[in-house]
């Protein structure tokens, strides 16, 4: 809110100290030349919080040639976007990114800063919180404003999501949070939305990246259809016992024309790569049919697959939480069920 207007409205002069720390900032991420979904999800949530605070939503982009992305942030609800446009920022380095962001935050004094709970957010948010002498709440699934105290309330999972803590900031500003990808809906784009873009001076004298990237490997082959867009996803977890058991998941996926995915357990066992991990990763799936084989179904998994239209769970353990989100459950060993199911499907 415009502070002069506020003064006029209330007849109160605002003290110098009070006029800092108002806006909500979203640190947007660029991947392969596009904004990541989490960047837009955060802008959407920031708008809601801004309405409660009477504040603006600001965003910041680092890289090169960013105007069209900035425009998209504005269409999705940002009031302003700061652009750190410089060839030296195309490649991520903690030292340069942290220098730009900390300089900006110290100058503009945001009330709240949101990062994605992504590789980038996990690199930057705690370092900046430490540099700015403030608190950070990680991996938030929900955010709201306590309007009586004007503080951010953040819901985040503990013990892998067995339950949640609703935590708050005890006075330090800015209030920094990292937000779980997929926790909030994508905001609608408003082509008429307007906002300001401002290029900031990029001064990186004496600052250089200390970690040299020798090579990047996409590692495991990427799925042909992105997992997030697959109509059918067959996912396996630790309950399959071994790689041979997991091969059944691949066979079922092939038979149904779907994609293979896996839980955190399957990743840890080395059956899948990170790009096929549902839960605790950037992957969110929304298939028409989701078959979970031998997956326990913790809350991370749930958040990543909750938008699936029809969920089938096959698990030996009747206590597995996956059954609570399944439309159809079979309490039995998936290694026994899948071959039977395959022959039924092929016969029919």
């Amino acid at each position: 809110m415009d502070l002069e207007y506020w003064e006029l409205l209330t007849g109160e002069a605002i003290e110098e100290e009070e006029i800092v720390c108002r806006d909500i900032w979203v640190v947007a991420e660029v991947k392969d030349g596009a904004l990541t979904p989490i960047s837009l999800e955060m802008v959407g949530k920031a708008r809601e919080l801004a309405a409660a605070l009477g504040a603006y939503v600001q965003s910041v982009l680092l890289g090169e040639g960013l105007e069209s992305l900035a425009q998209e942030l504005i269409h999705r609800g940002a009031n302003g976007v700061y652009l750190a446009d410089d060839p030296r920022l195309v490649e991520y380095h903690l030292e340069t990114y942290a220098e730009i962001l900390s300089g900006l935050f110290q100058a503009k004094k945001p009330e709240i800063i949101l990062f994605g709970a992504t590789e980038l957010g996990q690199e930057l948010a705690p370092r900046l919180a430490q540099r700015l002498g403030t608190g950070l709440i990680s991996d938030c699934l929900d955010l709201s404003i306590d309007e009586t105290e004007r503080v951010l309330l953040a819901t985040h999972p503990v013990y892998g999501g067995e339950y949640f803590h609703v935590s708050t900031f005890l006075g330090a500003k800015p209030q920094i949070a990292t937000v779980r990808p997929g926790a909030f809906r994508l905001p609608f784009a408003d082509e008429y939305g307007s906002g300001e873009m401002e290029k900031i001076a990029v001064n990186l004298e004496g600052i250089e990246g200390k970690v040299k990237v020798l090579s990047v490997s996409t590692g495991e082959a990427q799925p042909q259809v992105p997992l997030s867009k697959a109509r059918v996803v067959v996912a396996g977890g630790r309950g399959l016992g071994d790689a041979e058991g997991f091969a059944l998941v691949e066979e079922l996926a092939e038979a149904l024309g779907g994609q293979v995915a896996g839980s955190r357990g399957a990743l840890d066992e080395g059956w899948i790569g990170q790009e096929r991990q549902v839960g605790l990763s950037d992957v969110t799936v929304k298939p028409d049919l989701y078959i979970a084989c031998g997956i326990w179904g913790d809350v991370h998994h749930y958040f990543a697959m909750q938008e699936a239209k029809f969920v089938v769970a096959i698990n030996k353990n009747p206590e597995a939480p996956i059954f609570k989100v399944a439309d159809i459950g079979i309490v039995s060993d998936p290694k026994e069920i899948i071959p039977l199911l395959l022959s039924e499907l092929r016969a029919g």
Partner: peptide, 26 residues
């Protein structure tokens, strides 16, 4: 700098249909 307000719990979800019976039938 951070304080706990309260604990929260995931919603109890409704059970879907369970298919019981022998693996072949299921």
């Amino acid at each position: 700098l951070i304080g706990l307000r309260r604990k929260a719990f995931p919603p109890e979800r409704t059970f879907g249909e369970l298919i019981t019976g022998a693996p072949g039938e299921a």
